[in-house]
Design a binder for these strands. Structure first.
Length: 552
RNA sequence: UGGGUUAUUGUGUAACGGUAGCACGACAGAUUUUGGUUCUGUUUGUCUAGGUUCGAAUCCUAGUAACCCAACCA
């Protein structure tokens, strides 16, 4: 952390504002709509907003942008709060745009009184048609000529519930000829006779995003309102409302949202995956949601590190999934408990092993001096990984083969003497001998072997279920493909192994631990585990340079 | 046919007129009782064409490409 790092553009802006005395301290906000679960893209925004406030001694509000009751729900509110806290951030105040409904309503009346807003009876289609296109100018209709009194009366009647959904809207009177589509008399309020998750049936008119967000920022005295690039066209409107209302001038700044390869990052698409059953819920370990990543075994530290590494700028980007995986391996390598688990077992019989059982010490984490050791049982019959034996090995294959020696991790060097096959010629058992003087830690054999294998004593093996995950999509950027993004779902994104053999220590696994199954990858206990069967999710594989070498 | 935003190695991101750097990836080597980790080294880039300047990724001019804007979504 000692290396100099240049500031990104938002840090520069904040430092300039602070230096100029524009603000004494900064206040940011994270403004999710409670209509879905948070994903890794939100994590970038969370790290940015909370991180900036932390860095410059300010604070961050959590404000739910709950202006559309038909899509929003408290289920989402709860999940969002949990995810932010899990990521390691705490907000100054928990707020809701709906807290300001009365104030926003008064703001609307103010604008009506200033002759800057009017009630429009047009249909949605008519309004769209009158709005024009980006290339042609829009036209104003006769409703825009209503008097202040008439507008006030109508708007109050809207609030009072005199009209049905869609019958009328309140519009800002700005400029139907503006090259900015959003300035062509944007809708401020629409009628929705819908139950709101917080205000209940108190309201039947709800403000649009543009008439809620900027004013909410202003009411809270947010100094820097940070959002994504697609809101750039909203900025003139954001300022317009603040200026006309004469309220605290929060400034909006935009940055480029995070995109990740082999996944999708829109709540709409993620919702489809959930609803259509392509995944098992928002927290499916294959989802890019915070809850999915958490269940899969990602750590908050690794996600924060990732968000830090991707940077903050204003150009479109598509981040390599490999960077996220690098970050989680990097962290997990330091904290994960090592355990031995055989996924695809083949029997090894040590013919010259005379004692019944020997307990051998092995380190829990070679990266951690204080990680301690545990005992693993060694017996005559063991399981090793089927892929760790080859009858006719290629060059540089450092594993078991007829006549070839390997080290069993933390145990002895063994030699394969005999290959036992069944009627179909399938290898069923390997008869081996061990070198008694090659015991780990007290090896006097003088023999150096290249390969070290993980293994499990057959008599002590604990059957566990393993869930291996792969990328959710087969193409780098499914959202950019022609046609339905769901056509590119990876059919092999989940691979289950129902009977893997684990060393006995793993039976005591808890939900808070992260494991490295030696030579296999990083794993975490899944919530589907029962007393009878433990289930482990593969967070990420280990880097596998042998796989690359073997391919050549 | 309008307006806005953005262009630096395979992917991200710095350089604020003065040696194009960093991370991930890739490649090569060393260490290793995890073919993991760690360490060392190598590799590839300023969208194009002009111009200003002793000197341009940076300033100017003209192009090109990508993305966003025509929900009573946010």
């Amino acid at each position: 952390m000692s290396e100099e790092r240049s500031l990104h553009f938002l840090e520069e802006i904040i430092e300039a504002d602070l230096a100029a005395g524009k603000h004494n301290s900064i206040l940011t906000r994270f403004p999710p709509e409670p209509n879905g679960y948070l994903h890794i893209g939100h994590a970038k925004s969370i790290c940015l907003n909370f991180g900036l406030a932390q860095k410059y001694g300010g604070a961050t509000n959590l404000r739910f942008d709950d202006t559309n009751p038909v899509t929003e729900d408290t289920e989402y509110v709860e999940s969002i709060k949990e995810d932010i806290q899990w990521l390691g951030f705490s907000w100054k105040q928990e707020l809701y745009a709906s807290d300001y409904f009365e104030q926003l309503y008064q703001f609307a009346e103010t604008l009506i009184q200033k002759g800057l807003a009017y009630v429009d009876d047009s249909t949605s289609e008519e309004i769209a048609a009158q709005k024009g296109t980006p290339y042609t100018t829009g036209v104003r209709n006769k409703f825009s000529e209503r008097t202040v009194e008439e507008n006030l009366e109508l708007f109050r009647a809207m609030r009072a519930g005199k009209y049905k959904d869609g019958e009328k809207v309140l519009r800002a009177k700005i400029d139907m000829a503006s090259t900015e589509m959003l300035l062509r008399d944007p809708i401020m309020y629409r009628i929705k006779h819908a139950h709101h998750h917080r205000t209940g049936d108190q309201w039947c008119i709800y403000p649009m995003y543009d008439f809620a967000h900027g004013q909410s920022d202003s009411i809270e005295n947010i100094t820097h309102s940070i959002c994504t690039l697609e809101f750039i066209p909203h900025r003139p409107l954001y300022f317009w409302f603040i200026e006309q209302l004469g309220i605290f001038p929060t400034v909006q700044y935009e940055f480029a949202r995070l995109n990740l390869t082999y996944t999708v990052m829109s709540k709409r698409k993620l919702l489809q995956l959930v609803n259509d059953g392509h995944v098992n819920g928002w927290n499916d370990p294959r989802m890019p949601t915070i809850s999915g990543l958490r269940r899969r075994g990602y750590t908050p530290e690794s996600i924060r590190d990732f968000c830090d590494k991707v940077g903050v700028a204003r150009r479109e980007n598509l981040i390599d999934l490999g960077l996220l995986e690098f970050c989680v391996r990097n962290h997990l390598n330091k904290i994960a408990q090592r355990r031995m688990v055989v996924f695809d077992p083949i029997k090894v019989v040590i013919s010259n092993f005379e004692s019944k059982l020997e307990w051998l010490p092995t380190e829990n984490n070679p990266e951690d001096e204080n990680g301690g050791v545990r005992q693993v049982p060694f017996t005559k019959e063991l399981w090793i990984e089927a892929e760790d034996f080859m009858e006719n090995p290629p060059k540089k294959y450092f594993r078991l083969a007829p006549g070839q020696m390997v080290r069993l991790k933390s145990a002895y060097i063994i030699t394969c003497n005999e290959v036992v096959k069944d009627a179909e010629g399938k290898v069923t058992q390997l008869n081996c001998t061990y070198l008694p003087n090659s015991k780990s830690g007290e090896d006097t054999s003088g023999i150096n072997v290249k390969g070290t294998l993980h293994w499990v004593s057959a008599a002590h093996a604990v059957p566990v279920e393993i869930r291996e995950y792969d990328r959710l999509f087969t193409v780098e950027n499914p959202a950019a493909e022609e046609g339905d993004f769901k056509d590119f779902i990876n059919p092999n994104s989940l691979h289950m192994i129902s009977n893997a053999y684990a060393e006995p220590a793993l039976a005591q696994a808890t939900a808070v631990e992260h494991f490295q199954f030696v030579r296999k990858g990083y794993f975490k206990l899944d919530e589907d585990s029962t007393a009878d069967k433990l289930v482990f999710n593969r967070t990420v594989t280990l880097k596998d340079t042998w796989a690359k070498t073997a391919q050549k």
